[in-house]
C-alpha cells in the first residue's frame, strides 16, 4: 500500500510539474499542451466511437501478434534449445535477422502483404518472436539435468521429457519473453500505423490528429492511451505470472 501511495504521489508530482512548466510559458503551449488539457482531451476521446474503434483495432492486432509469435517461437525455442546441433546450424541466420528493426521492414512488408492490417501484425510478430524464442532457448539451458534424469528413469521418452518436464520448467522464462514481446509488439503496431496510415489504429489516430489541424492535445491523448495500454499489458502478464507460476519465484528465491 505504501508503494502504491508513493507511486501515486510521484505521478501527481510529475503531472503538476508538467502543468506548471506549460502554463508558465516555459514551454510553448501550442506545441506542448498542459497535462490537464491532454487528460480532458483523453476523457472526451473515450466517449468517441471512432477513437474506440481505433483502440480496439490496435488491441486486437496486439493479441493476434502475440498469440502468433508465441505459437511460432515456443516450439522453435524448444527445438533449438533441445538440439545443440540445430542451434549451431541456425545461429548465423538468427543473429543476422534478430537485430533488424521491424520498422525498417515496413516497405518490404507493404510490397509483400499490401496495406491491410496483416502488414502491421506480421511486423509485430517479427519483433515479438525474438524475445520469446531467446527466453525459451535460455530456459532450456537452465533446465536441471536431474529433473530430466528423474523423468527418464521413469521411462519417459524424448518427446515426453520435452513436453512434461522441459516445457513446464521453462514456462516462467517463456512468460517473461511473452511479456517483453507484448510491449515490443505495441510499439511496432503503433509505429507501423503511424508510418503507413490508412488502417484504423491508435497510430493512425495520432497521425491524423497531428497533421492538418495540428491538435497536439489529441496527439498527446492518443500517446498517453498507448502508454496506458502498454502498462496494462505488462501488469496483466506480471499478475498472471505470479498467480500461475508462484512455484518459480519461491523455489528460485530459496536456492
Amino acid at each position: 500500500m505504501r508503494a502504491f501511495t508513493r507511486g501515486t504521489a510521484g505521478l501527481v508530482g510529475f503531472l503538476a510539474l508538467g502543468e506548471v512548466a506549460t502554463r508558465s510559458g516555459l514551454v510553448p503551449r501550442a506545441s506542448l499542451p498542459p497535462p490537464s488539457v491532454v487528460l480532458a482531451g483523453l476523457a472526451g476521446l473515450l466517449a468517441d466511437e471512432t477513437f474506440l474503434l481505433d483502440v480496439i483495432a490496435t488491441v486486437l492486432a496486439l493479441v493476434i501478434a502475440v498469440a502468433v509469435a508465441s505459437a511460432i517461437a515456443v516450439p522453435l525455442g524448444l527445438v533449438l534449445g533441445g538440439n545443440p546441433a540445430v542451434r549451431q546450424a541456425t545461429r548465423a541466420v538468427v543473429e543476422f535477422l534478430r537485430p533488424i528493426p521491424s520498422v525498417a521492414l515496413i516497405p518490404l512488408a507493404l510490397v509483400l502483404l499490401g496495406s491491410g492490417p496483416e502488414t502491421k501484425i506480421a511486423l509485430a510478430v517479427y519483433a515479438s518472436v525474438w524475445p520469446i524464442l531467446f527466453n525459451t532457448v535460455y530456459a532450456l539451458d537452465e533446465l536441471d539435468g536431474l529433473l530430466v534424469e528423474t523423468a527418464r528413469a521413469f521411462g519417459c521418452g524424448r518427446l515426453r521429457v520435452l513436453l512434461s518436464v522441459a516445457l513446464p520448467s521453462a514456462l516462467p522464462f517463456v512468460l517473461t519473453g511473452v511479456r517483453l514481446a507484448a510491449t515490443t509488439s505495441l510499439v511496432v503496431l503503433v509505429s507501423t500505423e503511424l508510418l503507413t496510415g490508412g488502417n484504423p489504429g491508435i497510430g493512425e489516430f495520432i497521425l491524423e490528429a497531428g497533421s492538418g489541424a495540428g491538435r497536439m492535445d489529441l496527439v498527446l491523448a492518443g500517446t498517453v492511451l498507448a502508454g496506458i495500454l502498454g502498462y496494462l499489458v505488462n501488469a496483466a502478464f506480471e499478475g498472471a505470472g505470479r498467480r500461475l507460476l508462484g512455484w518459480s519465484a519461491l523455489t528460485r528465491g530459496r536456492s
Binding site: 536441471d144 536431474l146 528413469a153 521411462g155 513446464p168 520448467s169 507460476l245 512455484w247 518459480s248
Partner: peptide, 20 residues
C-alpha cells in the same frame, strides 16, 4: 535403455521433484 519397471531415488530431492 531404461527398463520399464525400475525407479530411482536421487540424493538431491529438491532437484528431482517437480516444483510445478
Amino acid at each position: 535403455g531404461v527398463p520399464d519397471d525400475l525407479a530411482v531415488v536421487f540424493q538431491d530431492y529438491s532437484r528431482s521433484l517437480f516444483p510445478w
